[in-house]
């Protein structure tokens, strides 16, 4: 590119000097380096995901999803862990969603600007950064032993609920923050109380954002292994019925349960003589599930954002 500039007019005012050319070259190199960094990040991961799906392809079928594991998970499908993950997510959501949303409401609508609020914010940040295994230790100490719940679905769900609390709080707060102050002021001017304003104006206008938070919680809860490893997930439970409708209600709250993430851990490290496809199949379904939940959240978010009128 430097050549062309050189040949048109040597010494002209707007021709590139060697300094300019060097700069241009450096610019090009920099841009490509940055671009390559992105590719270095994205390409191997897409390749690995592709490989996982390729290896998993022979077992992926509706039967694989629908059937319970048999013969030490070497045969059959992944229904029991899948429904276990569903219940884990559901119970943790029932616990954490109201608390998290109300906490977000408090922090955005009520909390005064003082040291106390700052320390709550700091607590939210720290909570988000606590390693999952430490959550597991906490769950084991607090829910399994101290509260006497034993290793159970309820103990694991409570642990997951504590772990995902900051996800919901942060998402709720951001959603509420996006509602223009003028909306609230208009409502207050009409004589509505604070809660009435929140209930009728603020919450309905921030449902989308809160929903995003909830969905992110679901994705996080569905993928975690370390906390449930210590609080109630097990490698195998033969108690899951094979026939509908019973197979939809396999665990009660005091039961230990199978979960998809735990199942992946088990098939990749615990069960001897298992086919490679079964391992990759479990990994593939877990990835698909998480990606599906996340894309759903992304699509929902952009749809609702597009619908916004302000």
């Amino acid at each position: 590119m430097g050549k062309a500039a050189n040949s048109t007019g040597a010494g002209g005012m707007f021709t590139a000097t060697s300094h300019d050319r060097r700069k241009a070259r450096r610019e090009g190199i920099a841009k490509w380096t940055f671009f390559c960094a992105c590719l270095l990040l994205i390409v191997p991961v897409l390749a690995i995901l592709g490989y996982i799906f390729f290896e998993a392809w022979p077992v992926l079928s509706w039967e694989y999803i629908w059937e319970n594991p048999r013969n030490n998970s070497r045969e059959g499908g992944i229904w029991a862990p899948l429904i276990g993950t569903f219940y884990l997510v559901l119970v943790s959501l029932v616990i954490v969603a109201p608390v998290g949303i109300l906490a977000g409401v408090y922090l955005n609508e009520y909390a005064p600007e003082n040291w106390l609020t700052r320390s709550i914010n700091m607590a939210v940040t720290s909570l988000a950064g606590v390693p999952s295994i430490v959550h597991g230790l906490f769950g084991a100490a607090a829910f399994v032993f101290a509260a006497g719940l034993g290793e159970s679905l309820l103990a694991a769900s409570l642990t997951i609920a504590v772990m995902t609390l900051p996800v919901i709080i942060t998402a709720t707060r951001e959603a509420l923050n996006a509602v223009p102050m003028a909306f609230r002021e208009a409502c207050w001017n009409m004589g509505a109380t604070r809660w009435q304003t929140i209930r009728t104006i603020v919450l309905p206008n921030s449902v989308s954002g809160m929903l995003t938070g909830v969905i992110l919680e679901v994705a996080r809860a569905a993928g975690e292994t370390a906390p449930i490893l210590l609080t109630g997930a097990i490698i195998f439970t033969p108690g899951v019925p094979d026939t509908a409708p019973d197979k939809f209600f396999p665990y009660y709250l005091g039961d230990q349960f199978m979960a998809l993430s735990m199942h992946l851990h088990a098939v990749s490290t615990q069960i001897a003589g298992i086919d490679k496809e079964m391992q990759f199949g479990t990994a593939a379904v877990l990835i698909l599930l998480i990606l599906f939940i996340n894309s759903f959240s992304a699509v929902l978010r952009s749809y609702l954002r597009a619908r916004k009128k302000w």
């Binding site: 030490n72 097990i234 490698i235 195998f236 439970t237 033969p238 108690g239 615990q270 069960i271 001897a272």
Partner: peptide, 28 residues
């Protein structure tokens, strides 16, 4: 025991066929 967990699971699985209504929860 993790050593026994395979056998224990196989026992549990088989026993659920032998004896209806008894569910054995196996954990390693």
């Amino acid at each position: 025991s993790d050593t026994l967990v395979q056998v224990a699971q196989a026992w549990a699985e088989q026993y659920s066929k032998v004896k209806e209504g008894v569910s054995v929860q196996v954990a390693g």
